[in-house]
Simulated assay, not measured.
Amino acid sequence: MNPFVDWQNFYVIVGGAAGALTGLQFVVMALIADMPVEAHEIETANAFATPTIVHFSAALLFAASFAMPWGGHMLAARGLWVLGGVAGLGYVGHVTQRMRRQAGYKPVFEDWCFHSLLPGAGYAAIMVSAAGLSDKARETPLFAMAFALLLLLVVGIHNAWDNVTYLVLLRHQRADAQKARQAE
């Protein structure tokens, strides 16, 4: 019997939301695909847009893994989740470096929170809660894991909104500049 039966509805909801939000990000990217891109903006997109898809995908993968019939293979499940938390922490470190190196946008405190601190806390919570999961101790680690996945979803939603808002404003700014040049 699956030891996570009581949690399956929660993870179906989280996984479904993560999958839908990932798809929505692709729709947004398709809608702005005709927008001209300057060289420094590619670095900026790699630093700020790509992590959103990674966090949504991580939430989807973790949620889906909870619905798998692990049976007596709890050690394998725990190992997978610990490795996923470690990989997520490594990725957040990589994103933080990208944020520092890119020149297209100067990050503010909110950016550091939602692109480094909060995702890092989410992946750390996944790692620690998975390591603490056992046949005897399930409730606290499972609530910590659930909170971590919700945190990654909220971070992704916030960051997706920021990305779209920034791109729409940039598009309007460029259109206004082009109109001004044409009026001269």
Rank of each mutant, 00 (worst) to 15 (best):
W112F: 08
Q173V: 07
Y11A: 00
Y166Q: 04
H73S: 11
R101M: 15
E184A: 13
E38K: 14
F48V: 07
F66Y: 09
P51C: 02
P69V: 05
T44G: 03
S129V: 04
I42W: 13
A30T: 05
V86Q: 07
L118M: 10
H40D: 11
L152S: 01
A137M: 15
A175Q: 10
Q97C: 10
H73D: 09
F147K: 02
G90I: 02
F56L: 00
P36M: 05
A63M: 04
M127R: 01
M127H: 05
T44I: 04
V37D: 09
Y11W: 06
D162W: 14
Y105T: 08
W161L: 09
A87G: 08
W81T: 01
L170N: 10
Y123V: 00
E139F: 15
S116L: 11
L150D: 06
L170F: 11
L75D: 15
L83G: 11
T50H: 13
A76Q: 15
A160F: 11
V5I: 14
M99D: 00
Q8T: 12
Y166R: 09
Q102T: 01
L60R: 01
M1L: 12
V108S: 11
M99E: 04
P107E: 01
S57L: 14
A175W: 03
L80A: 00
H55C: 02
P3I: 11
M68W: 15
Y11H: 06
L31C: 09
A33F: 14
A137Y: 13
E41Q: 12
P141M: 01
F62E: 09
D162C: 15
E184Q: 10
L24W: 13
Q97I: 12
I53P: 03
E110P: 03
F109G: 08
G104P: 05
V108Q: 15
Q8E: 13
K106N: 12
A18M: 03
A59T: 06
F66L: 13
Y166M: 05
A30M: 10
Y123P: 02
Q102E: 12
P3D: 00
L75M: 12
A39V: 11
A76E: 10
L149A: 10
V168S: 05
F66W: 07
L149V: 07
M35W: 09
N46V: 09
N9F: 10
G90N: 03
A67S: 15
Y105I: 01
E43L: 12
E43Q: 15
V82P: 00
M35D: 11
G79R: 08
H40I: 07
R98Y: 02
A144G: 05
V82K: 06
R181E: 14
Y123F: 12
V37S: 09
A59D: 02
L21Y: 10
D111S: 08
G90W: 11
V27A: 03
P51K: 04
T140P: 05
H94R: 08
E41I: 00
T44Q: 04
R138E: 14
A175N: 02
S116P: 06
F4H: 03
G84E: 07
L21A: 12
W81N: 05
T22C: 04
W161H: 14
W7E: 13
F114H: 04
F109I: 09
F109E: 06
L75N: 14
M29D: 08
F48R: 01
V164P: 04
E41L: 02
L150A: 13
D176A: 12
